[in-house]
């Protein structure tokens, strides 16, 4: 690069988006919103065999203020939906959401009076994961897909973002 050779040793020119995207995607701290069965598979994802830390995502933070991606693992009931939304609101921008499993994605097998039919009714979801519950490998797939998305996003995407809040 012409500019780099002009600046000399120790300089690198790149796009800000590329640099920030690279940094963000490799330091996603998950907030495990473990609600039911999927939470056990989420714990399995952290066990010695599957080892979530291979993806730089092992730092599970139970405080929303320290985390970047919320993994909603399990059935969200109407009673719990307010809590999930409140915790999402407490997370700092930029933030992402993974809907883990059929229940979080669409209500799953629970077509019942008390179960929210998909968390996209009250949260902006980035990645949906299939399975009841998904195997840990499938969760990793979701994390890698999210990393791709984070990498591609622009720094300005998260500035002045107006999130759609759909209340059914």
């Amino acid at each position: 690069m012409g500019l780099e050779s002009a600046l000399g040793e120790g300089y690198l020119t790149t796009k800000l988006d590329a640099l920030v995207g690279w940094a963000r995607k490799n330091s996603l701290w998950p907030m495990p919103m473990g609600l039911s069965c999927c939470a056990i598979e989420l714990m399995s994802a952290g066990d010695p065999r599957h080892d979530i830390s291979r993806y730089g995502m092992e730092v599970m933070r139970f405080s929303p203020r320290q985390s970047d991606v919320m993994i909603v693992a399990g059935t969200v009931t109407y009673k719990m939906a307010h809590v999930v939304r409140k915790i999402y609101d407490q997370m700092a921008e930029p933030r992402w959401v993974i809907a883990m499993g059929a229940c979080a994605s669409s209500g799953g097998m629970f077509r019942s009076y008390s179960v929210v039919q998909g968390i996209d009714q009250f949260l902006p979801v980035d990645v949906f994961t299939a399975g009841c519950p998904p195997r840990p490998e499938n969760l990793f797939n979701a994390l890698i897909e999210l990393q791709k998305k984070v990498e591609k996003s622009s720094v300005l995407d998260y500035r002045d973002r107006k999130e759609p809040i759909i209340i059914s």
């Binding site: 609600l35 059935t75 009931t77 809590v83 629970f110 077509r111 009076y113």
Partner: peptide, 11 residues
């Protein structure tokens, strides 16, 4: 309790 009430008995 009741944050995970999925209505099994009705289902």
């Amino acid at each position: 309790l009741g944050y995970l009430h999925r209505g099994y008995e009705k289902i």
